[in-house]
Simulated assay, not measured.
Amino acid sequence: MLEIEPSSVALSVWSPPYFVGKQYEKGETFESWQTILKKVIENHALVLKPGGFLVINIADILCFKDENIPRIQALNISHQKCKVTREMVLETRQKYPHYTRYQLAELLGCSEQTIDRRLNGNNIRGGKYLTQTRVKLVSHYLEKYAYNIGIYLYDKRIWAKDPCWANSQWTTNSLKAVSEYEDLYIFWKPGEYVIDRSKLSNQEWKEWGSRGIWFINSVRVNNDHEAKFPEELATRIIRLFSAKGDLVIDPFMGSGTTAIAAIKTDRKYIGIEKELSYVTLAEKRIQETTFVQTTLNFASFT
């Protein structure tokens, strides 16, 4: 990013790694992950032009491993295959006080694990020996890193995707909600920016331009990249927060979605990506898009 001309970028659009165990995140600690975000955000103090925007698509970490939290207990009676209840075990143990749990299990026709669970309430979510998880909010990290370099949180939107993103089939086995949305944090570098209502149609302003929640289906197949975001998401951000001819960058280019959206909306783009396989993928998709756009423009001109 430091090779980009200072104060030349009108809009930066990116979705960083989420620290959820993807292949390209191997070896990262929570601390090193924060360092990456901090450095990339800090670089925007140089490359963003005054009045420019930085839009980060990210979600909170819903399963953050924490060895210090209590074991999370969940008695899911809907999924109990054994009809033996705690009351039945207590009643049997009262009759046979010297029985071991193995003997109680044989008498009641269940496993010794069932006896243990009914007596001790150790229905531990995720298993007895796995590190427990909790929700970890990440937005305050982004806000702090940006605020410290003079870039300020201007707005926020919610991308409402669809539950089949996680093959959820519209339900979970716990009381936790299905993951069906992500956040868009919109930062602004002080300076004048232009409000041009003609960039969108009146219908588009009503449907999404002025709305806080964007309903966009997630990418159905991630067979060439683990975490693609939909082109429609990048397109809306680019159309709303930049103008034709502006320079748009993506410091985590991945499969090239931001570049493709920029090409189709007549913006210039710069994409940065460290994984060679994704660079190759992005270049291929960009070349295909450029060819199609050139063909369409030629047909329109003739």
Rank of each mutant, 00 (worst) to 15 (best):
M1H: 01
I4V: 14
W14G: 13
K22D: 00
K26I: 03
A45K: 13
L46E: 06
L46G: 06
F53R: 15
D60K: 15
L62P: 06
D66L: 10
P70V: 03
L75I: 15
L75W: 11
I77P: 15
T85L: 05
E87R: 07
M88K: 07
Y99W: 11
T100A: 04
T100F: 01
R101H: 03
R101C: 09
L104W: 03
S111C: 06
G121R: 00
N122T: 11
G127F: 04
K136S: 00
L137F: 14
L142W: 14
E143C: 02
E143V: 08
Y152S: 08
L153H: 09
D155H: 05
P163Q: 06
W165Y: 13
A166P: 15
N167V: 01
W170L: 03
L175G: 11
A177Y: 14
K189T: 09
E192F: 01
Y193I: 15
S210K: 15
V221Q: 14
V221E: 15
N223A: 13
T235N: 15
A243E: 07
D246P: 15
L247E: 12
L247W: 06
L247G: 03
F252Y: 12
G254T: 14
A261C: 10
A262H: 00
K268G: 05
K274N: 01
L276T: 11
I286E: 00
T302G: 00
